[in-house]
């Protein structure tokens, strides 16, 4: 008996949660589209991690202005993708730029999710006044055209990494809240929630332990899509000159700085555009694959 009990410890270990996540990703094999997406995302993550090893040059060093792709550098090495108007190697800037994007975009998305999930849980589970107030607040925020909202915030508080993360959280959390609220409204009427209530569980326990884990499927898919949007947003802000202050490489900013020369040197804008599009495409395809797989079984 005791032995049986020992071997059958039901405590959910982090290992099993990891295993589950791994299992759902291994299911992704069934969706070729999802696999391409996962490949693109994995590619950029690896590039970001190993950026110092991969980049042939210092991304900030001015070496040889306006070199075409494939030009050999006198000091050794090749500008595979050419250089920009200040003579910085575009390939190295794209490689290091992936770090910027893959740090700020997930940070902003996670922060939007934390706020949105808490709001959605409170509104969907407690209903009543919580719901009325939180829903109205998010309706009002969502009624702003997104970019107008960003421009106002950044015009007021200036451009910096922290402001961008706060602005994205502010603008995206209401959207996350709507999704979470919808899921919670559905899940809260489940009998296992009633069972938890009838054994006197606290509201916080029910929300976080009984409800939230069952909403994870749609939320993971949504997070991938939203991550794509956040990357676009960061790119757009960079492109409009409202992004991270130079000289750190930022894909949107790279396009903005060189777009006036696009007529003569299309490579300066083309390659960063390809980079950012491929990363967003990766997240969108991944989301689509996950959605397809989750609907199957």
């Amino acid at each position: 008996m005791a032995e049986l009990v020992k071997t059958l410890s039901p405590a959910p270990s982090p290992g099993s949660a990891l295993g589950r996540a791994f299992k759902s990703f291994s299911l992704l094999k069934e969706s070729p589209v999802g696999m391409i997406g996962a490949g693109l995302v994995a590619f950029w993550i690896l590039v970001a991690i190993f950026a110092p090893l991969l980049a042939p040059f210092d991304p900030l060093a001015t070496l040889k202005p306006m070199a075409k792709p494939g030009t050999e550098f006198a000091g050794g090495g090749t500008f595979w993708l050419g250089t920009d108007h200040l003579g910085r190697d575009i390939l190295s800037r794209i490689i290091f730029g992936s770090q910027t994007v893959l740090i700020y975009a997930p940070l902003a998305t996670i922060s939007a999710y934390v706020v949105g999930i808490l709001m959605g849980l409170a509104a969907g589970y407690h209903m009543g006044w919580w719901d009325v107030i939180l829903s109205r607040i998010s309706d009002i925020i969502l009624s702003f055209p997104v970019l107008v909202l960003y421009i106002i915030i950044i015009a007021t508080y200036g451009a910096s990494g922290a402001v961008i993360i706060v602005a994205i959280t502010f603008a995206s959390a209401p959207g996350v809240m709507r999704i979470v609220r919808g899921l919670v409204l559905d899940l809260r009427s489940r009998e296992y929630v009633a069972a938890a209530q009838t054994r006197g569980e606290a509201a916080m326990y029910i929300m976080l332990v009984e409800i939230l884990p069952n909403a994870r499927g749609p939320l993971i898919v949504d997070a991938c899509v939203r991550l794509g949007y956040v990357i676009i947003t960061i790119g757009v802000l960079g492109f409009l000159g409202l992004g991270l202050p130079p000289p750190d490489p930022d894909w949107g900013g790279m396009i903005n700085e060189t777009r006036k020369m696009a007529m003569i040197f299309p490579h300066m804008t083309l390659f960063p555009s390809i980079a950012i599009s491929s990363l967003i495409l990766g997240f969108n395809l991944l989301a689509d694959g996950l959605r397809e797989v989750s609907l199957r079984d």
């Binding site: 676009i232 083309l270 555009s273 950012i276 967003i280 969108n284």
Partner: peptide
């Protein structure tokens, strides 16, 4: 949908 506007303007 994956190509941001500023990228498609470039393309």
């Amino acid at each position: 949908t994956s190509i941001p506007e500023f990228a498609s303007t470039v393309f």
